[in-house]
Design a protein around this nucleic acid. Structure first.
Length: 505
RNA sequence: UCCUCCUUAGCUCAGUCGGUUAGAGCGUCGGACUGUUAAUCCGCAGGUCCUAGGUUCAAGUCCUAGAGGGGGAGCCA
C-alpha cells in the first residue's frame, strides 16, 4: 500500500492505495474520484476504455466518504492537487457510505459542530489539525533542545489556585476537588527540582464565555525556569515563538495554502525583534498620546475606517453590475448561479466590513477613555497591536491587576509580568512573568487576596528552602493555532472543542 | 450574569403591507454527456415555518413567554 503523500516517489509505477472518497464527478465513460487517506489528497480516474466493465461499474458506485482500495498507475499531472493522479486499474469498496450529511456546499456553524466527528474529514479541518500537530512538535523540539524537562502538573487540584477564575468541581473520593486551571504553581516546584521544566497539558476554566477566543477545555504549555528574571523570560518567549513559527512555516506550506493563509506577517516576525513596551508606554500609545512610526492610534484607525468604507462602496458597485448582468437575461443558467453565489459572497463581505466599520469608532472611544491602571480589554489589544507588524510584549504592569505570586519591581508599583499580544487582532497568546521569592511578602499577598493559607503551605515551602529568582509563562495552544491559521473562531483549533453549551460530540 | 442578532426542505437561504396551494439554489435519487476541478444539463422526491399561548375573518409574517444557536462584555491562554 502506498500513501498519497508518497505518490511522487512512484511516478509511472503501478501501486495500490486506500482511503475515502471525498467527491466524485463523472462523464460518459469517465469517473473522477477525489481520494483522501489522511496523508493527502489525489484525483483518481477510471476510464471505461481502459478498465474492465466490472471495475468501471464499481467506480460508478462510489459515493461521498465510502472507503475504497484502488490499484493503478501514478501519473504526474500539474493540474491536480498534489501534482499526481492515479489511473485506476482495480477498485474495491471497503465500507459503503450513504447520504453523508456534509456536502461540498456551505454549512452553518451549529450544523458543523453537531457533525464535528465528520467535519474533521474535510480538507480545511485536516489542514488545521496538521498545523496543530506541527506546532506541538515544534514546541517539544524547542524546549528539549534548550535543555528543558517536560514535567506534568496534576489535573485534579484541591484548591482554586489563584482564586480569580471559576473552576469545574469534581468529587474526589468524597472530597471536593477542581479541574486544574493552571499548572504554574506546581511548575515552580518542579523547576526547583529540575532547573528548567515545561508542562504541556489540558486546562479547564468554567467561565460561561461565548467569544471566539475562549474554550472551557484547552491545552497550555507552561515553562518555568529557575534563575531567570523577567528580561531573560522575555528573551526566551521571543526566541521560542520565532522558532515555532519558523518551523511550522517550513513544514506546513501545503496546509497554509489549503487554508488560503497569507503568511507574510509570520515570515516577518521570525527574524524581527518583538516590540517590548512597559505598560505605562503602552497606555500612552493606546490613548493616542504617543506616536508609532509618525502616527497615533487615532490617525491609524481613522485611515483604516476610510479604507473599509471605500472597500464597501467598491463591493456595492460590483454587486449592482452583476445584478444588471443577470437581469439582461443573456446568461446561461450555470453562469447565473455562479453570479448569484458571487453576489451572496459579496453581501456577506459587506456585512462583515460594516461590522468592522461600526467597531472602529467604539474601539477608538474605549482607547481614548482607557483608565490608567486597569487591564486591557479585547479591543484595546487589537488597537495596540494594529500599530506594529510583530507581536507586542507588554511588561511592568500595575501590581494590583496581576496575580498574588507576581514579583514587584524596585519601585514597588509594578509587577514584573509580561503579556504577549499577537498581531492581526488575536490578542493575548502568552501571559507570564517573574515570581515573588520573598516568603513574608507572599504570605501578605495571600492574605490580601483572601486565599486559604493552608492550601499554599507547600508552595510557601519553595521560599523557605533555597528560594531563587525564577520566571515562567503560559502559552495557549489553541490561540496559537487560531492565530497561525488566521481562523475566525478558536473552536476549529481542537478536534473536539469543549465550550459553553457544547459537550457533544 | 448582561447586551445584541438569529431560528422556514437534508444543507444555505428568500418570503414585500397579515391575504389563494410556502419558494429558490445546493445535496440525495433517476437520466444525459469521454478530462472533470464545488463540473455541467434534464427530471423526481423532499415542509411540526423552533415550542406554547394570544390578537385577528385570516399568522411563516404581529404580541407575550420559553427553548436552542450566533456575536460581544466580563474572565483569561
Amino acid at each position: 500500500m502506498v500513501e498519497i503523500k508518497d505518490f511522487h516517489k512512484h511516478t509511472g509505477e503501478r501501486v495500490s492505495t486506500q482511503g475515502w472518497v471525498m467527491n466524485t464527478r463523472s462523464s460518459k465513460g469517465l469517473e473522477f474520484i477525489i481520494l483522501r487517506d489522511g496523508s493527502g489528497f489525489a484525483q483518481c480516474v477510471a476510464d471505461a476504455a481502459v478498465v474492465s466493465a466490472e471495475v468501471f461499474e464499481i467506480a460508478k458506485q462510489f459515493t461521498q466518504e465510502c472507503s475504497v482500495r484502488l490499484t493503478g498507475k501514478i501519473v504526474a499531472d500539474e493540474k491536480q492537487i498534489g501534482g499526481y493522479e492515479l489511473h485506476i486499474e482495480q477498485a474495491e469498496i471497503i465500507g459503503t457510505s450513504e447520504n453523508y450529511p456534509i456536502s461540498n456546499k456551505e454549512h452553518g456553524v451549529e450544523f458543523l459542530m453537531d457533525n464535528r466527528h465528520l467535519w474533521l474529514r474535510s480538507k480545511r479541518q485536516w489542514a488545521i489539525m496538521k498545523i496543530r500537530n506541527r506546532i506541538i512538535f515544534a514546541i517539544h523540539t524547542f524546549f528539549q533542545n534548550e535543555g528543558f524537562v517536560q514535567a506534568d502538573a496534576p489535573i485534579f487540584t484541591g484548591n482554586a489556585a489563584e482564586g480569580t477564575t471559576t473552576l469545574f468541581n469534581v468529587e474526589y473520593y468524597g472530597e471536593d476537588a477542581y479541574l486544574s486551571q493552571s499548572g504554574q504553581l506546581y511548575g515552580e516546584a518542579m523547576a526547583m527540582a529540575l532547573g528548567k521544566i515545561y508542562t504541556f497539558g489540558p486546562t479547564f476554566r468554567a467561565e460561561k464565555s461565548k467569544t471566539r477566543r475562549h474554550l472551557s477545555e484547552f491545552w497550555m504549555i507552561e515553562p518555568e525556569m529557575a534563575f531567570y528574571n523577567n528580561e531573560m523570560n522575555m528573551d526566551l518567549i521571543e526566541k521560542f515563538l520565532q522558532f515555532v513559527v519558523s518551523d511550522v512555516l517550513t513544514h506546513c506550506k501545503f496546509e497554509f495554502e489549503a487554508l488560503e493563509r497569507n503568511t507574510t506577517v509570520l515570515e516577518t516576525l521570525i527574524h524581527k525583534p518583538f516590540k517590548r513596551l512597559p505598560y505605562t508606554q503602552a497606555v500612552r500609545i493606546l490613548k493616542g498620546e504617543e506616536q508609532v512610526n509618525g502616527k497615533t492610534t487615532i490617525e491609524t484607525l481613522e485611515s483604516d475606517l476610510s479604507l473599509i468604507e471605500t472597500e464597501i462602496s467598491e463591493k456595492r458597485t460590483e454587486i449592482s453590475e452583476k445584478e444588471k448582468a443577470i437581469a439582461d437575461g443573456t446568461l446561461k443558467k450555470g453562469q447565473i448561479n455562479f453570479m448569484q453565489n458571487k453576489i451572496d459572497m459579496l453581501k456577506n463581505d459587506i456585512k462583515e466590513l460594516e461590522a468592522q466599520a461600526e467597531n472602529i469608532p467604539q474601539w477608538l472611544k474605549s482607547a481614548k477613555e482607557f483608565e490608567y491602571g486597569s487591564d486591557f480589554g479585547g479591543s484595546d489589544e487589537t488597537v495596540l497591536t494594529r500599530m506594529f507588524d510583530v507581536p507586542v510584549m507588554v511588561f511592568n504592569w500595575p501590581h494590583e491587576i496581576k496575580a498574588f505570586y507576581m514579583k514587584r519591581d524596585e519601585t514597588g508599583q509594578f509587577a514584573k509580568g509580561v503579556d504577549v499580544l499577537a498581531p492581526e487582532g488575536y490578542g493575548e497568546i502568552v501571559g507570564g512573568g517573574e515570581r515573588e521569592t520573598d516568603l513574608n511578602y507572599l504570605i501578605g499577598k495571600i492574605d490580601e487576596h483572601k486565599l486559604p493559607m493552608e492550601a499554599f503551605e507547600w508552595y510557601l515551602d519553595l521560599r523557605k528552602y533555597g528560594s531563587v529568582p525564577h520566571s515562567g509563562f503560559g502559552l495557549g495552544l489553541e490561540r496559537m493555532v487560531s492565530w497561525l491559521c488566521k481562523l475566525k473562531h478558536i473552536r476549529e483549533t481542537i478536534p473536539f472543542p469543549r465550550m459553553y453549551g457544547r459537550l457533544n460530540p
